[in-house]
């Protein structure tokens, strides 16, 4: 925003003009600084918060986030929620929005793996086989939540291998005591010690969580590779800034932030 220099030399009025200018800058920003709304999968909570700070520092924009299960974000977007960027934890909650013309893009920007976690002070679950033992309390995400979908794909893979018996997933699902609306709620239940074990993403084992949970080994052949797509909203009020954010996420700087928070390179 261009403003003419103050004409008065009176110190008070200069101060007032300065205040006015800075208020305008804060309120409206300069021509390129806008406020951006990003809808992102719950698992991106920490990484995207840092991403937003880095992006804002660079561009002068104000980026705000809404983190929730991708299925919840998709429903909100379907029902007319205003956003500029959408990052989902799987394609199933993303491509329908592309098909209906609400979102463009869909480039994978990271991949993620599953992790089985258990509370540190609870030795009930030591191996994968223990997950199928009676009396174990498991918490997973609901089947429409991306991580819940991946969890069930993992169960199918384990069943097929026969490593723990063909009925492993039945026994596993019998032990499930709650199906949560997003992955952070799943992790929380283990952190609080309420569940004996849970399936989350490996990126969810954040520094804050690490001191209260154990991560169990999950053989690669059972693990699932989660691919996260990102895109911009067609009705975005700031399409250029939205594009810039997506570009920043895909840039070396953005990828370094994601790596720091435990995510892997896109496949």
């Amino acid at each position: 925003m261009k403003s003419s220099p103050p004409t008065s030399t009176h110190p008070g009025s200069i101060l007032k003009t300065k205040l006015l200018i800075s208020t305008l800058l804060l309120g409206l920003g300069n021509a390129s600084a806008v406020s951006l709304t990003v809808f992102a999968a719950a698992s991106l909570t920490d990484a995207f918060a840092e991403m937003g700070r880095a992006f804002d520092a660079k561009t002068g924009n104000t980026t705000t986030f809404q983190f929730a299960g991708s299925q919840a974000l998709r429903t909100q977007l379907d029902n007319g929620a205003r956003a500029d960027v959408y990052a989902s934890a799987n394609n199933a909650q993303f491509s329908p929005l592309v098909k209906s013309g609400l979102v463009t893009g869909g480039q994978p920007f990271l991949s993620n793996r599953l992790a089985v976690i258990a509370p540190k002070n609870n030795a009930k679950v030591q191996t994968l086989a223990d997950l199928g033992k009676p009396g174990v309390k498991l918490v997973i995400a609901d089947k429409v939540v991306p991580v819940g979908t991946y969890t069930r794909q993992m169960l199918t893979a384990i069943d097929k291998s026969g490593a723990y018996g063909r009925d492993f997933s039945d026994r596993f699902l019998n032990n499930v005591v709650s199906e949560e609306p997003n992955v952070r709620q799943v992790a929380l239940k283990v952190q609080l010690g309420e569940a004996d074990a849970a399936v989350v993403y490996s990126s969810d084992v954040t520094p804050a969580l690490r001191h209260s949970v154990r991560v169990m080994t999950l053989p690669t052949r059972f693990n699932q590779s989660a691919s996260y797509p990102i895109g911009t909203l067609k009705n975005s009020a700031n399409p250029e800034a939205a594009q810039a954010f997506v570009k920043f996420v895909l840039s070396g700087e953005g990828q370094a932030i994601l790596k720091k928070w435990g995510f892997l390179k896109p496949r």
Partner: peptide
């Protein structure tokens, strides 16, 4: 406090919340 599991702890309000998403 009770989580959400169909047939066990999923009450009407919890069901509305989870059904809205699918």
């Amino acid at each position: 406090f009770a989580g959400s599991l169909q047939g066990k702890t999923r009450t009407i309000t919890l069901a509305i919340y989870s059904a809205l998403e699918s």
